[in-house]
């Protein structure tokens, strides 16, 4: 796979405030890259630089091999951008809106009618073709904006929080649409401050906090990364305190604490090690004479991962 989006040491300063502190980001062609971070982390600034709307203070960014600073026109041809806060020309009809942007992308007049029809079909808005944009729901406007971003058949879609402010149904619709676009071979860079919102559709994740890329890679790689810090739940019939002392003395255990739920007390263990080390721990506990009747690992979803990473556990 070749990298279609690349940034090297991307820095953006607003006066004395540094919004981006040297972002090195790589997005492979055909990937759905989830760019996640809390509000104010620098997601929108990064995306605006990639969309040629902002100039970086330092560093470089390239899309499809073109510099976002020096080859803006080529970059604009390669990307479809949807900002987090976007407006629509409410006094235009739906088809006029798409036709207008198609014209802005220099698409010939005779092609535009067919293109508009196809785009409206893709985002399931054909039935609202003659309506004014103002009459559409927010979810529909979002889909229309996505159709607009596709007017010139870009290689890369840069979507800044496309599901923000949408009701659950509209979120699902947008998610399905992104899946469809992924199948069509588009590279999608999608930002969100809610990881669970995009984890289902992403092939890659990048987590940004305070202007720094905390981690990035495939979903599997990031999950493996977090597995270094595993949370175990161990239930014993007796000798709970002995087991706590025994575990606390081990170098691969960072913390042990009793946790009571439904009248039962378990030990919650923060453990470092791979699956083999985990099996070894259980064997050693059994060998030490502890009557273990439950030995399980807390499942770690990406939301937990996000919480850990952005608290600096990994970084």
């Amino acid at each position: 796979m070749t990298a279609i989006i690349e940034t090297q040491g991307l820095v953006k300063q607003y006066g004395k405030f540094t919004a981006l502190k040297g972002i090195d980001l790589t997005v492979e062609e055909g990937a759905v890259f989830g760019f996640v971070g809390p509000n104010g982390a620098g997601k929108t600034t990064t995306l605006r630089i990639l969309a040629t709307l902002l100039r970086p203070t330092a560093g470089q960014a390239r899309i499809a091999g073109h510099s976002v600073e020096k080859e803006r026109r080529a970059v604009r041809r390669a990307i479809g951008y949807m900002p987090d806060f976007f407006g629509v020309y409410g006094d235009m009809k739906v088809w006029e809106y798409l036709d207008f942007f198609a014209a802005c992308y220099e698409i010939p007049k005779d092609v535009r009618a067919t293109l508009t029809k196809d785009l409206l079909e893709l985002v399931e808005l054909s039935h609202r073709r003659e309506d004014y944009v103002d009459a559409l729901s927010r979810g529909m406007k979002q889909r229309l904006c996505l159709a607009r971003a596709l007017a010139h058949d870009p290689q890369v879609l840069i979507l800044d929080e496309p599901a923000s402010g949408l009701d659950p149904r509209a979120r699902v619709e947008i998610r399905e649409l992104l899946r469809e676009l992924h199948k069509m071979g588009k590279t999608i860079l999608v930002s969100s401050h809610i990881l669970s919102e995009i984890q289902e559709i992403c092939t890659h994740i990048g987590i940004i906090e305070a202007g720094e890329l905390v981690t990035s890679g495939t979903l599997e790689a990031i999950r493996e990364q977090i597995q270094i810090h595993r949370v175990l739940r161990i239930h014993l019939i007796t000798r709970l305190e002995d087991a706590q002392t025994w575990l606390a003395g081990r170098p691969d255990v960072h913390a042990v604490a009793p946790v009571t739920a439904n009248g039962k007390t378990d030990l919650q263990v923060d453990f470092s090690g791979d699956d083999e080390a985990l099996a070894g721990l259980l064997a050693e506990m059994m060998a030490a004479g502890f009557s273990v009747i439950k030995f399980s690992e807390e499942t770690t979803n990406l939301e937990d991962l996000f919480m850990r990473l952005t608290k600096g556990i990994v970084s």
Binding site: R48, L53, I79, Y81, F85, G87, C104, E106
Partner: peptide, 12 residues
């Protein structure tokens, strides 16, 4: 104000 200008600027 409407948020349409950024979109316009990313066109050709």
């Amino acid at each position: 104000e409407l948020g349409t200008f950024d979109i316009l600027r990313t066109t050709l």
